[in-house]
Design a protein around this nucleic acid. Structure first.
Length: 203
DNA sequence: CACCCGATTATCT
DNA sequence: GATAATCGGGTGT
C-alpha cells in the first residue's frame, strides 16, 4: 500500500482521472482516519470549456494552476465544497480531477456523524457529500496529497478496466461530447477480506 | 426509482 | 446582479 507519487499526477488529466478509480483517499483528522475507495471521477482540462481554468486564472481557481498532486477545493451553490486533485501534462497550463464518489472504508461512524446519519449507501456518493463526510473545506486548499499528512492518496485496489464506465460529466452543459467521467459501481470493486486497506496510526 | 425544485453564498462580471 | 462541476426533500409512478 503505497502513496501515489508526484509522477502519477504529471500525466494527461483524463488519464489520471481514469487511473484514480480504485485508489484510496485518506483523510487524517482529529486522530481519526477517514478513508474510502475512489469510484467516480471527472477530468477538467485547461483546453476544455467546462474547466474552471478555461477562461484564465482567478483568485478562486488559482490552485488549478499550481503544482500537480495538490488539492483544489472550491465552494459551490452556497453550500458545498468539492475536492479536485491537480493533474496535468507539463505542456498544459492547468487541469484537475474532481473526486465525485468514494466507497467508505475506514471511520464510517465518524463520517455518518458528520453527515447526520444518512443510509450508508449514499454516505459519500457525491462531491459535496465526500467533503462533508471527511471534513474538507477551503482550509485544505493546496494540500499536497503526495505527502503523508492530513490528506493523501494511496494505491488502493486493482479495478477491472472493463468495469470502469465512461460518460459525459454531470451537471454541466458545455463539452457534453467529452466522455471524461469515470465511474465503477461498488459491486464491481473487490475489497479483499484481509486487505492492507486499513490505515494505522497513533491513536 | 425518476423527476422537479428551492436553498444559499463565494466569486466573477 | 447573475451564476454555479450540488444536495435533499417532495411528489408521482
Amino acid at each position: 500500500m503505497n502513496i501515489l507519487p508526484l509522477s502519477f499526477y504529471e500525466r494527461d488529466t483524463v488519464e489520471v482521472a481514469h487511473d484514480l478509480i480504485g485508489k484510496l483517499l485518506v483523510r487524517h483528522v482529529d486522530g481519526h482516519y477517514l478513508t474510502g475507495i475512489i469510484n467516480e471521477t471527472e477530468a477538467y482540462r485547461a483546453d476544455d470549456p467546462a474547466c474552471h481554468a478555461f477562461k484564465g486564472k482567478t483568485e478562486r481557481n488559482a490552485a488549478l494552476f499550481g503544482p500537480v498532486g495538490h488539492a483544489y477545493v472550491y465552494f459551490i451553490y452556497g453550500n458545498h465544497f468539492c475536492l479536485n486533485i491537480v493533474a496535468r501534462e507539463l505542456s498544459m497550463i492547468s487541469g484537475g480531477v474532481l473526486i465525485r464518489s468514494i466507497i467508505p472504508c475506514q471511520g464510517i461512524d465518524t463520517m455518518l456523524r458528520n453527515r447526520n446519519y444518512p443510509p450508508t449507501k449514499i454516505l459519500t456518493n457525491g462531491p459535496g457529500k465526500i467533503t462533508q463526510a471527511v471534513s474538507i473545506t477551503k482550509k485544505q486548499q493546496g494540500v499536497d496529497v503526495t505527502k503523508q499528512g492530513e490528506l493523501y492518496i494511496l494505491s488502493g485496489v486493482t479495478v477491472n478496466p472493463n468495469a470502469i464506465h465512461k460518460t459525459p460529466r454531470i451537471g454541466i452543459t458545455a463539452a457534453h461530447d467529452r466522455f471524461w467521467r469515470f465511474v465503477v459501481s461498488p459491486e464491481d470493486i473487490q475489497i479483499p477480506a484481509f486487505s492492507n486497506l486499513f490505515v494505522h496510526g497513533h491513536e
